[in-house]
Design a protein around this nucleic acid. Structure first.
Length: 203
DNA sequence: AGCACA
């Protein structure tokens, strides 16, 4: 088909390019909107685009009808030459994006997740703190060993091992610094079988 | 003659 494959947008050329952009747009709208809802009209004075217009309809059938009816129509002493645009306009492609419906399992999962989140609001959701609580350390872990581990991180202040407990507090300048260290060392194996566990200290 | 907009 010489007009191209049907499309929501009409490509109009051979327009009188001496007409001001706003006026052209307004006149085109007046005529073309009589065939159906026009979503957008684009005219440009750019060298490559002068004398042309893109007219986008909500419905393809209206676009097709307008094309047929307006083809060759004299407009400011020039016959309009109309075809379907090569590509759909963005207004159309954006609106066409298909959102797959959620199946029941997905919905149930989401509902459960929401309910669970409500049950324990601040429960095991960690509140960032400047001090980290370290667990699963070897019993013999002491301050200098902890310093060795944590002082490589910016903002490190001091380590406070809990005597003989395999646990320690490590202080940082602020929660941000503590977070970097915590994330970096999470699960770090001090000995081959001992991943340490890091959480924020509770105030 | 010439097909853009995000």
């Amino acid at each position: 088909m010489f007009d191209g494959t049907p499309c929501h947008t009409l490509y109009v050329k051979n327009l009188n390019d001496k007409i001001k952009k706003i006026e052209l747009t307004r006149q085109l709208y007046a005529m073309f909107s009589t065939y159906g809802m026009v979503l957008d009209i684009m005219v440009s004075k750019a060298p490559k685009l002068r004398g042309q217009a893109f007219i986008t309809y909500k419905d393809i059938s209206d676009a097709a009808n307008a094309l047929k009816r307006m083809q060759g129509f004299p407009f400011y002493e020039k016959a309009m030459m109309i075809s379907f645009a090569k590509r759909e306009s963005h207004v159309i492609t954006q609106a066409k994006k298909y959102v797959p419906p959620k199946d029941e399992r997905t919905l149930a999962k989401e509902t459960n997740a929401k309910l669970a989140a409500k049950k324990k609001p601040a429960g095991d959701e960690e509140e960032p703190a400047a001090t980290i609580y370290v667990e699963n350390l070897p019993d013999e872990a002491n301050e200098s060993m902890l310093n060795l581990l944590f002082s490589q991180f910016p903002g490190f202040k001091k380590s406070r091992p809990i005597p003989a407990g395999g646990k320690a507090f490590v202080e940082f300048a602020d929660p941000g610094a503590a977070t970097s260290a915590k994330d970096a060392l999470q699960g770090f194996k001090v000995t081959p079988d001992r991943p340490i566990k890091l959480t924020y200290a509770k105030n």
